[in-house]
């Protein structure tokens, strides 16, 4: 696992900028020049990557399986949209607000998440996400219900760069959010706290024996993960100037679980690449034929349990291993 190599080395490797990650970042920047026609799609890919990284912190590192992570994504999206509608439409302010709202909700929910086994966790997360969805659906005066929340303006980024029609600012904004999130989460997972999280994933029963406060660690991970998911949602709402119920839905929760696993649980480069690949494939194929996309996705998911476990991340590791050997 590439995370282990980060403990030594200079500044850049301490924030995760090395090897394959460098290629990932360079590729992200290059995509701006390679696909200037598709900046809107690329922005969405960055959003998906941030969301996938937030889920990976929870499931890939902490071992908490969740079927309702879209709740935090959607909360962030609505928080940013609602704040912008009240007139406070600075994008960074919206980002911070969305992160705080999502993280707070996650924090409130932690007592019921950290207890119980995998099955009850799946249900609690699914139940809570359904509750949030229903609440958003019912509170039309706040969320617009099934029509979503359109028509809000976002102020120029840093007061300087207007969100233009071609999506250049949106691209740079979402890439910056992705890069900063990536470096932040890299620091988190390579810290002693991250190591403790992986210990909990491997064996939650033995961790208390070495004095590790399992529940507190999981609570911190859940809150962080919720906050980052909120950031992803906020970026999507701000750059698309729209917040809607499907941002909260079960489909999105199931999707992010697949994306993170197909990318390679606990492998941040793999998850990022996986998210980008998934988002791009989905955009290409689901416009051609949504039903065959769904069929193909189902088959890939079933196969992924038996072959290519470890996802794209382990493929990348194998490539690198072959080259250096």
């Amino acid at each position: 696992m590439s995370t282990s190599s980060a403990t030594q080395g200079g500044f850049y490797s301490r924030i995760g900028i090395q090897g394959v990650t460098l290629v990932l970042f360079a590729g992200s920047i290059a995509s701006y020049f390679l696909f200037p026609e598709h900046l809107a799609l690329l922005t969405q890919l960055f959003v998906l990557m941030v969301f996938a990284l937030s889920y990976d912190l929870l499931q890939g590192h902490g071992g908490i399986v969740s079927l309702g992570h879209a709740a935090f994504f959607g909360l962030g999206a609505y928080a940013a949209a609602i704040l912008a509608r009240t007139g406070y439409n600075d994008p960074l302010l919206g980002l911070v607000f969305a992160a705080i709202v999502s993280a707070l909700v996650a924090l409130v929910l932690t007592p019921i998440i950290v207890r119980g086994n995998d099955f009850t966790r799946l249900l609690v997360t699914l139940g809570v996400a359904s509750l949030v969805y229903e609440a958003a659906n019912r509170m039309r005066w706040l969320t617009g219900g099934a029509d979503g929340l359109p028509d809000f303006e976002i102020a120029p980024l840093l007061g300087l760069y207007r969100f233009d029609f071609e999506g250049r600012t949106a691209f740079i904004y979402s890439f910056a959010v992705f890069a900063l999130t990536y470096m932040f989460l890299w620091r988190v997972v390579t810290s002693p706290f991250g190591l403790a999280l992986r210990g909990i994933r491997e064996n939650a029963r033995r961790m208390p024996a070495i004095g590790s406060p399992v529940r507190r660690h999981l609570a911190v991970a859940y809150t962080l993960s919720g906050g980052v998911a909120g950031i992803a949602g906020a970026v999507l709402a701000q750059t698309s100037r729209f917040a809607s119920l499907d941002m909260l839905g079960f489909d999105r929760s199931a999707e992010i679980m697949m994306v993170a696993t197909l990318g390679g649980s606990g492998h941040m480069v793999g998850v990022s690449v996986g998210a980008a690949a998934f988002g791009w494939l989905k955009d290409v194929l689901s416009t051609v034929s949504p039903k065959y996309w769904q069929l193909g996705l189902g088959i890939v998911l079933m196969l992924s349990v038996f072959v290519a476990r470890g996802g794209i991340g382990s493929l990348l590791d194998r490539l690198r291993f072959r080259r250096s050997a």
Partner: peptide
Amino acid sequence: ALQQVLFSIGLAFALSAIATI
């Protein structure tokens, strides 16, 4: 649990897509 969930969601997706087709 994760592997089971992924497999069975995949199966449900595939069956639902087949029904649509």
